[in-house]
């Protein structure tokens, strides 16, 4: 999972767009590329994409807000993706999610106030044999129970605290 590396206006997004021809057809690949590099799509990025491809900004917005592919807000420092695929669900991922929601005080799809955690629901994360599973910052955790989740979250909290020092 790419981390939100920046919120900074001065960053030059055009580097990421090199190699894409000036053709509206490449709007979707360009948006993915930006999100891959920066973790989310900022207003500046959308404007840059519009400029690079020569399409109206409105068109870029209309695609960027379609479905659930794109995030228009930065991610938290720690991204938790709870699998809600069919396998995980019938093996209890719903319980895992509700524990996390209660623990972090946010709903799926939101980021905590302090920017520490983002909680996401993911479709199958390819670990069905280990259901229920979740990914935290790209690390896979399988065969979960509510208690495990609390422990894992604590670990990441401590990690963040120690690296902040």
């Amino acid at each position: 999972m790419a981390q939100s590396k920046t919120n900074d206006r001065s960053v030059d997004f055009s580097a990421a767009l090199q190699g894409y021809p000036r053709d509206p057809k490449y709007l979707l690949p360009v948006l993915y590329k930006l999100q891959e590099n920066y973790g989310f799509l900022s207003t500046e990025m959308l404007q840059e994409a519009a400029r690079h491809l020569g399409v109206p900004v409105g068109k870029v917005y209309s695609l960027a807000t379609f479905g659930e592919e794109f995030r228009l807000e930065p991610l938290g420092r720690c991204v938790i993706e709870v699998c809600s695929g069919a396998c995980c669900r019938i093996k209890g991922s719903g319980g895992i999610l509700s524990v996390l929601e209660a623990e972090l005080g946010i709903k799926a799809g939101q980021t905590t106030q302090n920017g520490a955690f983002t909680l996401l629901e993911a479709s199958c994360i390819d670990a069905c044999a280990l259901a229920p599973a979740m990914r935290v910052n790209g690390h896979l955790y399988g065969n979960l129970q509510g208690g495990d989740v609390l422990r894992i979250i604590k670990e990441y909290e401590l990690l963040q605290k120690s690296s902040a020092k």
Binding site: G95, S98, V99, Q145, G146, G147
Partner: peptide
């Protein structure tokens, strides 16, 4: 009946 207590009880 949210079930959280059941999930978290070690």
């Amino acid at each position: 009946s949210c079930g959280i207590c059941h999930e978290v009880c070690p």
